[in-house]
């Protein structure tokens, strides 16, 4: 199976990755190979087999409802691209 450029653009949009037109042909070729690889799975008979998300056959461990974190805003925002009055700034969010 191959991906059309429309497919690729849709995926890139979902993943918020800007694709240049010049990249598309190359990616299509690489995807043909990758899909060829993963399409091998289609031939496997997995009737009656439960999907496995995790090799660990364990249940979830829970934490007690305690506040353990203190304000570290200054430290965390020291690596932020743009902040003001304690807020992270981004281009206007349109609803």
């Amino acid at each position: 199976m191959a991906l059309t450029d429309t497919d690729l653009k849709r995926l890139a949009r979902l993943a918020r990755l800007r694709l240049e037109e010049s990249e598309i042909t190359g990616l299509q070729g690489q995807f043909a190979g990758i899909l060829g690889l993963i399409d091998q799975l289609q031939a496997v008979d997995t009737r009656g087999i439960e999907p496995l998300s995790h090799a660990l056959d364990l249940g979830l461990r829970l934490r007690e409802d305690l506040v353990t974190e203190t304000d570290q805003r200054a430290r965390f925002q020291s690596v932020a691209p743009q902040v003001e009055e304690g807020l992270y700034l981004v281009p206007k969010v349109i609803e």
Partner: peptide, 30 residues
């Protein structure tokens, strides 16, 4: 490439054929 591949195998219409199928084969490998 891997982000796009991952987005593809999780996307609507492909999840069962790729993601769930891969998880089933994962169980066979285990």
């Amino acid at each position: 490439r891997r982000i796009l591949t991952g987005t593809y195998v999780l996307s609507r219409g492909y999840y069962d054929a790729y993601y769930l199928q891969a998880q089933r084969v994962r169980r066979l490998i285990v």
